[in-house]
Design a binder for these strands. Structure first.
Ligand code: MN
Ligand code: MN
Ligand code: MN
Ligand code: MN
Lengths: 221, 221
DNA sequence: TAAATAAGTTAGGTTATACTAACAAATTGA
DNA sequence: TCAATTTGTTAGTATAACCTAACTTATTTA
């Protein structure tokens, strides 16, 4: 049985590993990376690693990179599943906005009951994606695959549909709402400024300008 | 901000205080009572009391009885409200049985979000009673009043409707199901054995025998 | 009322999860 | 290549929440 904090470390490792894999020049997750992500000191991470190693959820040797074991990955996917199902519940059943649900799901993801999460899944009609377009693992840890790319990589004059966001912070999501961008919104690329990657686009027939930081965090196609 | 454990101490004190008031010869809640109820040692309770006193949630002087302050009572009612709303949600929306929901609600009651619990309340249609017939405090801490009495106190040949149960353990609730007793079931008292208070009753036209322990834990009228 | 028992407190120890400060290893780059 | 910088570890401290053992105060009862 894991504590909530242990679960958060596992989930963070899963997240950082996938980030890492997605990056071009990856080189594994270190103590400092995990500490920075979780906003704790590296020494704290070190102690936690000792415990997670004992529980055989991570592999790590002195001065080396940190890796989840198969069991650790399974555990992490279970937590992600709960997080995304709860977010979906909050949006579709309780009418929360997509920028309000993450923090509450951070708490709900730690509720221990297999029966509960399976009933929520059923109640929601077995959704495949959460309110931010992130895939929801099924109860075996399988994640639906889908081809997406960053809006920043889409070529000129193409039209594309928003599938997901890569940042679920309230600030970003509220800015997207202001821009009239939501999941399934169609965006047409009109111009790309070579200097800084700024995009001139059309949304619902209206012109808008998106910074590179914004278009990097929108997944389309 | 309270920890989950602190919340459980407050809730326990609220419960013991109401039990106490209901008893004939009450005399207040002591360290040992609380320790026994929470299944911890009295010394642990003592430490926690120090912290709860600092937070002005309880009054307690050395060797004296323990009392919730007004703020403590308000806090406790908030937790009870969450507990009972979640239980109601689990039964009415997710089709859990009434004997399965208590333990899950013990976890859910600690989720921190006023907005969430008010939305759940609305989603459920502002229920007044939980699946065990317990009253649900509103968001000001007001509890619906209702006259009830123990089935064991009902006179001979009376018919009465089950309003609530005083024990929410799985064992008791499953036994009630076996006896075909649920909330709103009509029970007719046919005979009361003076020796041990055993009741011969009729439920849905069928005869049954209820021990005093059972009839003490059923509230009717 | 004094002894026995019950109730409550204190002291000191443990574990999980944090921290700071000091140190060691690995990497970088002049 | 070796000094500087970055990265990672160790040692020692703190707090919440638990424990046991020893002690004190209050209540019961012979
Ligand atoms: Mn989220
Ligand atoms: Mn979390
Ligand atoms: Mn309950
Ligand atoms: Mn609880």
């Amino acid at each position: 049985m894991l504590t909530q904090v242990e679960e958060n470390y596992i989930k963070a490792l899963l997240h950082l590993a996938s980030q890492d894999r997605a990056m071009t020049q990856q080189e594994g997750v270190g103590t400092n990376d995990l500490a920075a992500y979780l906003q704790v000191k590296p020494s704290t991470v070190n102690e936690m690693l000792k415990r997670l190693k004992e529980k055989e959820l991570v592999n790590h040797k002195k001065y080396g990179k940190i890796n989840l074991t198969a069991a650790g990955t399974r555990t992490g996917l279970g937590i992600v599943r709960k997080h995304r199902l709860w977010e979906t519940f909050l949006c579709t059943k309780l009418e929360f906005d997509w920028d309000e649900v993450h923090d509450i799901a951070e708490q709900l993801e730690h509720i221990r009951s297999d029966k509960l999460i399976d009933k929520i899944d059923k109640f929601l009609g077995y959704p495949k994606y959460d309110p931010h377009g992130d895939p929801i693992p099924d109860n075996h840890g399988n994640i639906p695959k889908r081809d997406t790319q960053k809006l920043s990589n889409v070529g000129l004059d193409h039209s594309c549909r928003v599938l997901a966001v890569r940042d679920t912070s309230t600030a970003f999501l509220q800015y997207l709402e202001q821009l009239n961008i939501a999941i399934n919104t169609i965006i047409e690329i009109k111009e790309k400024i070579p200097y800084d990657g700024t995009l001139r686009v059309e949304i619902d027939g209206k012109a808008a300008v998106l910074s590179n930081k914004v278009s990097e965090n929108i997944l389309v196609e």
